Computed example of a mutant assay.
Amino acid sequence: MSIETMRELQAYGFYIMLVAMVVILYSYWFHLKRSEKVGRKDYEKYSNLALNDNLQDDVLESLSSSDKDDNRSVKK
């Protein structure tokens, strides 16, 4: 295999990976926007988590009773 063929294959591989990464990025963005629109999660409140990290700040999500029971059943 010559150097030119290897470089040509490398270029094709680069563009295929680039397109794949763009598709993955936009599908993830679409998933975030769709789940926010449906109401499953509100990701915008997590964006200020680094800014509002004092002890006096509001809690983002409170644990449900089933989550609390699951945490208590774990033995140390």
Rank of each mutant, 00 (worst) to 15 (best):
L51G: 02
M21G: 01
L55E: 10
D53A: 06
L55V: 10
K37Q: 14
N48D: 12
R40N: 11
Y43W: 15
N48P: 01
L32R: 09
K45A: 05
E4P: 01
H31M: 10
A11W: 03
K68F: 07
L63G: 00
E44H: 04
V19G: 07
S66I: 15
V23L: 10
F14K: 08
V38I: 15
K45D: 03
L9Y: 02
I16D: 07
Q10N: 12
D69Y: 14
D58T: 15
D42V: 03
K75C: 09
S66E: 13
M6Q: 14
E44N: 09
Y15N: 05
D58W: 12
L60C: 02
S27Y: 10
W29H: 14
R72S: 03
M6G: 00
D57I: 04
L9F: 02
D69F: 14
S66W: 09
D58F: 09
E36I: 00
N71Q: 10
S65T: 13
D42I: 09
S47I: 05
D57E: 13
E36Q: 13
E36K: 01
E36A: 02
F14A: 06
D53Y: 07
S27G: 08
R72F: 12
G13L: 00
S64N: 15
N54P: 00
S35F: 12
V22S: 10
K33Y: 10
S2V: 08
S73C: 01
V22N: 05
L63M: 12
D69P: 00
A11G: 01
K41L: 09
N54E: 11
K45N: 06
L18W: 03
G39M: 02
Y43K: 01
H31V: 02
E8I: 04
G13V: 00
S27W: 06
L9Q: 12
S27L: 15
D42K: 04
D53N: 14
Q56E: 12
A11S: 05
S73V: 07
Y43S: 03
N54W: 08
R72I: 13
A20T: 08
F14Y: 11
L9E: 06
N71V: 11
R40T: 04
K41Y: 15
D53Q: 09
R34L: 14
R40L: 12
D67I: 06
E8N: 08
Y12L: 05
K33I: 10
Y15R: 04
K33R: 13
S73Y: 08
D58A: 14
D70I: 03
Y26G: 03
L25P: 00
K45F: 06
E36P: 00
N52K: 06
R7L: 13
E61M: 11
I3W: 11
K33M: 10
D42F: 05
R34F: 09
